[in-house]
Design a protein around this nucleic acid. Structure first.
Lengths: 237, 237
DNA sequence: AGTGGTTACAGTCATTGTGACGTTAACCTG
DNA sequence: CAGGTTAACGTCACAATGACTGTAACCACT
């Protein structure tokens, strides 16, 4: 029996398995990283992949995404920014079954003290995409590439960058988010001016952040300003 | 037997029906319109809805979208612009089954001579969304709203507007696309300058377009310039 | 043929946003 | 206290934009 015949018999028209895969991005050590997990179900239990789960009968898609992060990576982040990326449904993207996968983009600040379980890890996105060899299961390499482009684009027109940092934050921390995601170096003074001139992006809070071990003037602290869209936008150089 | 029990039994974890619904937008008579169809399968055969089809076993999602347009609205547009919008998967969005729907946004110029079959029609988007009463089946009103916002946003930083017009086109035709989708009136001279100063947006072709019945100077003709992203962007007023 | 109306196209001017760069302020270490 | 580092602020030239005026090329009507 050929694989094609098998698939057509097992998955008649309009009936597919629906899964949710999550590309969680975070900035650690000034580098954009993506969360990977070792699947606990075949196939590809040897390869790393994005955390993903089948959609349960009484679950909406957002809930499945949260559950995938919680069960496969120990990340319980109900307040993490979560948005749909796109849906991948080519026949043959999974060699064993017709699986339509709704991919999510998740953004969250992971504190340095947070420890991942042994079957999960953070990997720099640039390193993952630069290598010609595909190190991920299924089409998850493509999903990571799409997630990166979405994040880069969203930083321009939305206040999404604040989802990468914990409150309160300094403008230098916010700038390092842009630099890590875009992969560029930004002029510090101009960045400050643009953020200040974009209404609702950030608002100052009381107190200052102490300088690092290398000294420097204490930085003012800010919190998200409530705006979701940025006017004017923070365009990439 | 309750409806919930029925759904849980018929649609166990991870197994859903997957459909593709298409929101096809076009500009006719200077007004943004969306294509609706009468479903040929229950439920909601009385209400208008977006053309949609179940995903076939050997089909990818794009192919299903094209098939839905062809079978339900007689629109055979293999060159129409087609992009994923988002996926709607709340339990209960279809009262009879757990259906996960991948929504697509389609953009195409429909010539004035094209006639739709009797079970399909074009409806002004503004009129559809302005009425408080929901005239569409399922959550298709929400899909139309999301499609409109996506189209409005994409016009800003991509050359998507050219997908609404036939080649060759005049700058006035292109401007009327922006005005219809955004619902604003644009300054004609400034629009011309912005388009001309955006490299790769349009390129001039030979010949001129004759004036309409109300006279006026003949307009130069243009075709898409090959760029997909616009630099600088055409921001909404 | 001439006049007024309409549309296409081109230019001016003040304002705003931006990139590049310099200056001052407030901390660190030695 | 000196030198280094980071934060914060200011200046200047240029590009982009909104509002507006002027010119060109067609129409219909008298």
């Amino acid at each position: 029996m050929s694989a094609q015949t098998t698939m057509a018999e097992l998955w008649p028209d309009g009936l597919c398995a629906v899964a949710v895969d999550v590309a969680l991005l975070t900035v650690r050590d000034g580098v954009l990283q993506v969360l990977l997990a070792k699947p606990d179900t075949p196939p590809f239990t040897a390869l790393w992949s994005l955390p993903g789960r089948r959609v349960a009968a009484d679950e909406n898609l957002d809930e499945t995404a949260h559950r995938a992060l919680r069960e496969l990576a120990g990340v319980a982040a109900p307040d993490a920014h979560l948005q749909q990326l796109r849906t991948y449904g080519d026949p043959g993207r999974d060699p064993h079954a017709r699986i339509v996968s709704v991919a999510y983009l998740a953004l969250t600040p992971l504190t340095d003290t947070f420890v991942l379980p042994s079957h999960a890890q953070l990997v720099p996105v640039a390193q993952l995409l630069a290598n010609g060899a595909n190190q991920l299961a299924y089409d998850h390499r493509q999903i990571v590439a799409d997630a990166l482009e979405r994040a880069r684009s969203k930083l321009e027109y939305s206040s999404l960058a604040t989802a990468f940092v914990t409150e309160p934050f300094t403008l230098a921390e916010l700038r390092r988010v842009y630099e890590a995601v875009w992969g560029v170096v930004l002029d510090e003074a101009n960045f400050r001016r643009k953020v200040a001139h974009t209404p609702g992006f950030v608002v100052e809070v009381s107190g200052v952040a102490p300088p690092g071990p290398e000294g420097g003037r204490p930085a003012k602290r800010y919190k998200p300003g409530g705006a979701t869209q940025l006017h004017p936008a923070m365009l990439r150089p």
